[in-house]
Amino acid sequence: MNTNSKAPLLKVDDIHVYYGSIHAIKGISFEVNEGEIVTLIGANGAGKSTTLNTVSGLLKPRLGMISFNGESIVGMGASRIVAKGMALCPEGRRVFQQMTVRENLEMGGFTRPADEIPASLEDVFKRFPRLKEREKQVAGTLSGGEQQMLAMGRALMSKPKLLMLDEPSMGLAPILVEQIFDIIKELHGAGVTILLVEQNAQMALSIADRAYVLGTGKITISGNAADVLADDRVRAAYLGG
């Protein structure tokens, strides 16, 4: 995959991120090519979410380059980056609890022209029929799985080229985790490039093309997902032997 002649859709080059004086990300580089599913795995506190938050523009790297679609997006700010075609479905879902399902989805389409919204809403409702049933319900009353679907649907409303998912399986029952991963595969099949951060390394590696393993602010292992899945160090650290 790395031998693609095309430039990568997302290229992160040696970024350093600080929280105050804490050096959270110590020089991470990775790429996501168009059409891939790439996963970032690693233990709690390794910096996976920090990385996604930095790529999405919520955090600013102190050093390093991030380019999306060939354009530098460092320092651009999250609200402008969304319009470039990158959406982050954040950790903990963060749906707007006091707004209705429909309003949440409308917010997801905030950067898009009003006349395109109805068609996108239809698309999302087709993919997540559950959300259609709950359209007028306040998001805070949804179950965890439904909230995850809403968060994903909301991210899709911006018609992203690259969809970043931060721990989509967190706190969900195994059957729901399966469902969420099926949806990720479907989205990928529909042409969305995916960058997936997961604690559930087994699941993530089973659907990804390539993987990067993060250990306290650095990338320790990278390669094809199948190779990473077979790597003894990964097996020992993240897959329970």
Partner: peptide
């Protein structure tokens, strides 16, 4: 309303 609930998530919406 979105900003009032969750500023970061609102930013992620654009």
């Amino acid at each position: 309303r979105a900003v009032s609930e969750d500023r970061g998530a609102a930013e992620l919406m654009g």
